[in-house]
Design a protein around this nucleic acid. Structure first.
Length: 497
RNA sequence: GGCGCGGUACCCAAGUGGUAAGGGAGAGGUCUGCAAAACCUUUAUGCGUCGGUUCGAUCCCGACCCGCGCCUCCA
């Protein structure tokens, strides 16, 4: 089944393919590194990651470019306030961004492109536009894009130009533009601001030109797909199309992928609403990185996701169940006998087919999840009834491995990630954000994995000697520290609550 | 005002013109030295309301009600 994806440009679900027959060439608008990323940012990157992984499942190679906006108004302002050069200021948040991406299991793009390292390409592009009188210089030295010269303007966001012009928003700009809706390509330097000396005059690039220049530098004039959050559709992506296509007279990106915003507790996330969370905030509250990843991926990307703490708890439980299942099937010594019939094997294969088909169908993660849980139930039942064979177990593990090549939640790195967040909070003096629970479990007084293993072993021994009082005392001791023991046929497992 | 999305069980959430996936929670049960966990079973005569099309609609069409997003820096 071919991978199909909604295309914002055409408004239809269309096959996704690599036009060069090898690798999917795509560009994703990356972060502006002026602060720590919030969970809304990561919903977008998580779904781009999902797209990557699903494309790979379909045998597509990947050539994924993501920009880092390391110069913009907010960075300049914040760096100034911190008394640091912008490079030093942005480097810290760029590093934090990649740490967070890793914590959420998001793969690195093949190519990272920093704005400040690609100024030349942006200047070239603006000059190309200027040579066609599509870019013009205003009195203050800023350069603008003449929208009137690009008839296709609005085709992505389906905007009516007149509507924009007549709308309530009138761009009140202190500089002279030929038309209100013309947008900045190059911003003239204001006193005290970082600037580049270029043939265009001193200044710094506008945000939109960055992405056009870098996408075309690494992917060519035309490429397969362009991704970003829904808010970027207009004006950012619209402007990218205008700049690029006006300069090259070739189609820019063929397929446009937009991820909808998430809501937090039913409202748009904002600092003033008090529902604004970074990944680090959540880790310090004791929520697991895997649960955050799973929740953010569970609702398909074209739907709003209402992010709630209840939902996070649900996801935690769901991930636990999947991990327990994976551990059980992996650890069990299933008999190498022939199955009584092929019912289970058929079910597992159906689960596999359903899983793959769901993802191929515009990345329907909700259905893909359901397919896996169907298999989980059937296989668990068989195992409980002692009729799970080695062959079926292996088939199940293969499917789980496929599942995890997409969802990436089975491997348990959660404790380490929470410890890393805790170390960060200590270093940054943010211990007030750490929940008492996290402090107890993961702080210096918390038990290490080795210490837990030792106590568990001691209890197992006591149990074997039928010294149940001692065994129960140890179990309670562990429970008080947030360690839950599970006795099963396959042995004792422990996990952090 | 313009553009767009959604309203499915206690909560989250798929889906289809022929009669409601999955997860979480609750309840019952199995297992267990006990407990917890795990596992199993179970939970919508109904899919916002009202009309229409149809042999048949949650799914198609229309109207209405409610919630939300984008249109401005914003993932």
């Amino acid at each position: 089944m071919a991978l199909e994806l909604f295309n914002t440009l055409s408004g239809k679900i269309e096959p996704l393919f690599a036009s060069d027959g090898h690798a999917l060439r795509f560009y994703c608008c990356g972060p502006t590194v002026y602060d720590y990323g919030h969970i809304g940012n990561f919903r977008t990157f998580l779904h781009v990651d999902l797209l990557r992984r699903t494309a790979r499942l379909h045998g597509l190679g990947l050539h994924h470019v993501m920009n880092i906006t390391d110069v913009d108004d907010k960075i300049i302002r914040n760096a100034l306030a911190a008394g640091k050069p912008i490079g030093e200021y942005s480097a810290k948040f760029e590093q934090a961004f990649f740490e967070d991406m890793d914590a959420l299991g998001i793969e690195q793009p093949e190519q990272i492109a920093r704005a400040t390292e690609n100024i030349d390409g942006m200047v070239d592009l603006i000059e190309r536009l200027a040579s066609q009188d599509i870019a013009y210089k205003a009195e203050d030295g800023s350069w603008y894009f003449r929208i009137a010269r690009f008839p296709g303007y609005g085709k992505l966001s389906k905007k009516d130009l007149d509507g924009i012009e007549d709308g309530a928003r009138v761009d009140v700009d202190e500089y002279e533009k030929d038309a209100a809706r013309d947008f900045a390509l190059w911003k003239a330097t204001k006193p005290g601001e970082t600037s580049w000396q270029t043939p265009l005059g001193p200044g710094r690039p506008g945000w939109h030109i960055e992405c056009s220049a870098m996408a075309m530098k690494y992917l060519g004039d035309s490429f397969d797909l362009h991704a970003g959050g829904e808010d970027l559709m207009f004006p950012h992506h619209e402007n990218e199309i205008a700049q690029s296509e006006a300069a090259t007279h070739k189609p820019f990106a063929r397929h446009w992928f937009h991820v909808r915003f998430l809501l937090v507790e039913g409202k748009k996330m904002s600092k003033s609403e008090g529902n604004f969370f970074t990944l680090r905030d959540l880790l310090l509250k004791g929520y697991r990185a895997s649960a955050i990843r799973f929740l953010l991926l569970s609702v398909p990307y074209r739907h709003q996701l209402n992010f709630t703490f209840d939902g996070l708890t649900e996801s935690t439980n769901a991930v636990d169940r999947l991990r327990t299942f994976n551990d059980r099937i992996r650890a069990g010594n299933w008999p190498a006998t022939a199955p009584a019939d092929d019912t289970l094997s058929t079910l597992i294969r159906k689960g596999d087919a359903d899983f793959t088909a769901a993802l191929a169908s515009d990345l329907n993660t909700a259905e893909a999840r359901a397919a896996i849980f169907d298999v989980l139930r059937a296989v668990n039942t068989a195992a409980d009834q002692s009729r799970l064979t080695r062959a079926d177990a292996e088939e199940t593990l293969a499917l789980l491995s496929k599942f995890d090549s997409i969802f990436a939640v089975l491997e348990d790195r959660d404790a380490d990630l929470t410890r890393a967040a805790l170390a960060w909070a200590e270093a940054e003096g943010r211990m007030d954000d750490v929940s008492p629970d996290v402090l107890e479990k993961f702080g210096s007084s918390g038990l290490t994995d080795a210490a837990i293993d030792a106590l568990v072993a001691e209890r197992t021994l006591a149990k074997k000697q039928r010294n149940f009082a001692r065994a129960d005392a140890l179990r309670n001791e562990l429970l008080e520290k947030g360690i839950l023991l599970e006795d099963s046929k396959e042995g004792v497992r422990w996990k952090r609550q």
